[in-house]
């Protein structure tokens, strides 16, 4: 498959309360092998997926938050977080995991994968996509 499409995975749900966040992340990881132009959006409760300090030992279920750190290695490095969603939840970028990737076009410099964008900017980014995945 030579065709490259602009794929965006849109996350609007918090982790653990339901499985959507985890199974959505599984799609992103599998999808990375298809070498599409991939980005991921985190809006509404989806921003909670990226919060630091997740610890599920008391629940006895899998803590998948570390998996987000692997996204950079899979060339998934456009993670858009909506500022209005952070603001509404009293969160800032400092509350989120520091997700990085190495930019192969810039001497493998380490860069931030998370890009905080306004609703208006995100609406434009949605518009530029070709396929929107929802979970």
């Amino acid at each position: 498959m030579s065709e490259i499409k602009k794929f965006m995975y849109i996350n609007r749900k918090a982790p653990y309360g339901t499985i959507y966040a985890w199974e959505s992340l599984e799609v992103v990881l599998i999808g990375a092998a298809f070498e599409q132009d991939v980005s991921v959006a985190f809006v509404d409760d989806g921003v909670y997926q990226l919060c630091k300090g997740q610890d599920t030992t008391g629940l006895g279920i899998k803590n998948f938050s570390a998996t987000y750190r692997a996204l950079g290695d899979y060339d998934v490095n456009k993670l858009y977080v909506e500022k209005e969603s952070l603001d509404a939840r009293g969160l800032t970028l400092d509350d989120l995991m520091p997700l990085k990737y190495e930019d192969e076009n810039d001497d493998y410099a380490e860069k931030d994968s998370i890009r905080v964008v306004s609703s208006k900017e995100l609406a434009e980014i949605f518009d530029q996509q070709e396929v929107l995945f929802n979970f």
């Binding site: 799609v27 599998i30 298809f34 396929v131 995945f133 979970f135």
Partner: peptide
């Protein structure tokens, strides 16, 4: 089958329509 089937469907189809909760 695998999740790749969803990705492939996204690539091969002209529209993806999602139904869920």
């Amino acid at each position: 089958s695998g999740l790749g089937q969803l990705i492939e469907a996204g690539i091969q189809s002209e529209r993806l329509v999602v139904f869920g909760d």
